[in-house]
């Protein structure tokens, strides 16, 4: 069991980080902490993906010196997926921060429960 986890160290770490990330995202009441949790969660997935595409001892998939054999390079697809994912998570972080700024300007707190309580008193 431990041997298996150690052999797949990157994946194990990624799954643990994923768990930490989503617990922070769901359980913390502070909005900034939630956003940090979101980023930890997403980064864990990118670590998972990137480690899956990496083949030990092989090079980045850029053709140099005319070597075209696939054995020479690592799998480029996960790297492409990670890049796409990073773009997505950057834009989501931006949106969440913008929402946080709006909420803070309106309610002068970052605590989501407090904000919900304050909002309930308003007219719909």
């Amino acid at each position: 069991m431990w041997q298996l986890l150690y052999e797949n160290l990157e994946q194990t770490v990624a799954v643990i980080l994923f768990g930490i990330g989503f617990s922070i995202l769901l359980l913390q009441r502070n909005l900034i902490r939630k956003i940090i949790g979101l980023n930890i969660m997403d980064t864990a997935i990118y670590l998972f993906l990137a480690s899956m595409g990496y083949i030990h001892g092989q090079k980045a998939p850029i053709v140099v010196d005319g070597i075209t054999s696939t054995v020479a390079y690592i799998n480029p697809v996960p790297a492409g997926l990670v890049l796409t994912g990073i773009v997505v998570s950057v834009s989501f972080t931006g949106i969440m921060l913008a929402l946080t700024i709006r909420l803070y300007r309106r309610y002068h707190t970052l605590d989501i429960d407090e904000i919900a309580l304050l909002a309930r008193g308003e007219d719909a």
Partner: peptide, 19 residues
């Protein structure tokens, strides 16, 4: 205020689901 709070909740759940 209501839409802001609602959409923050919405985003948190949806980002979790996307993860």
């Amino acid at each position: 205020g209501h839409t802001l709070v609602a959409i923050t909740r919405y985003m948190i759940m949806h980002l979790f689901a996307s993860g």
